[in-house]
């Protein structure tokens, strides 16, 4: 299927490892030019090297997406380097585990700053450039805690639900400009995040990821982990000319985990 992504310019936040890097690699594979950002110079350089080794037109910028000045310069640097901006993938941010008693408000504040306020600013900075093309895509990676709340995912649930509301409202605003705003919702994807993750609490402490799979697998219909590339496939599809009537919606890439039917 021709996705029509050749020559498009893509910005992927948090694109130096895991899901973000997989997304960047897939865009490179589709012939797009890709800017990634990260907080750590060594990891950023390694990611850009990997993207260029794959024959890609790639650039990396140091940026903390929870710092609004960084977000502004990230978008400006991307446009200065590639001359335009067509697609933004907001992927930065992690999962914050713990109960309301475990997490002081400062931790939640930081989480919201990265995944909600930073994305708000990213949209504000990117919009003028997307509008110039009279088309554009803004895709947010929203962890499945947004749809599947729980006692020990309360911080991510609150934050990710806000992301969903942001995506839907922003899509309403930008439809008239032919800028499509959507989300991809991962859960149970292998990444550096899950390498050290202990699912279902202490019961599985010290056990391998494979061993843990048998535990939460009871709750996940497909009963296995997905790969970062599974997310990347959904993202490049959402960003493509093949998804031009999709806006304000999302795709679950979670092995059937979330329970809502509507």
């Amino acid at each position: 299927m021709d996705l029509g992504l050749q020559e498009k310019v893509v910005l992927v936040t948090g694109g130096t490892s895991g899901i973000g890097l997989a997304i960047a690699q897939r865009f490179i594979g589709e012939g797009a030019a890709v800017a990634v950002c990260g907080r750590d110079r060594t990891r950023l350089d390694a990611a850009v090297r990997a993207l260029r080794d794959a024959g890609g037109n790639a650039e990396g910028f140091i940026a903390h997406v929870d710092r609004m000045a960084d977000v502004k310069s990230l978008v400006a640097s991307t446009v200065a380097r590639f001359g335009r901006l067509d697609i933004v993938v907001s992927n930065a941010g992690t999962h914050l585990k713990g109960s309301v008693e475990d997490l002081p408000v400062e931790r939640l504040e930081q989480h919201l700053r990265t995944k909600v306020l930073g994305v708000w600013e990213l949209a504000r900075q990117a919009l003028p450039h997307l509008r110039k093309q009279k088309s554009g895509r803004f895709i947010v990676i929203v962890g499945q805690a947004g749809k599947v709340p729980g006692a020990n995912v309360i911080a991510s649930a609150v934050t990710n639900a806000a992301q969903h509301a942001f995506v839907k409202s922003l899509s309403d605003y930008l439809g008239k400009d032919n800028i499509l705003v959507n989300a991809v919702c991962p859960s149970r994807i292998k990444s550096p995040l899950t390498d050290t993750l202990n699912l279902d609490g202490e019961r599985y402490l010290g056990l391998s990821l494979e061993h843990q799979e048998s535990g939460w697998g009871l709750k996940v219909p497909l009963g296995r982990f997905g790969e970062p590339d599974d997310i990347a496939s959904a993202v490049v599809f959402m960003a493509s000319e093949r998804a031009s009537f999709l806006t304000g919606t999302n795709i679950d890439v979670d092995g059937g985990y979330q329970r809502m039917i509507f």
Binding site: F245, T249, D252, V253, D254, G256
Partner: peptide, 15 residues
């Protein structure tokens, strides 16, 4: 390319 997607619904409805 969608082997980890099941039980999901995608709206194709222009928003």
């Amino acid at each position: 390319r969608a082997t980890f997607i099941t039980g999901s619904t995608i709206s194709v409805d222009g928003g």
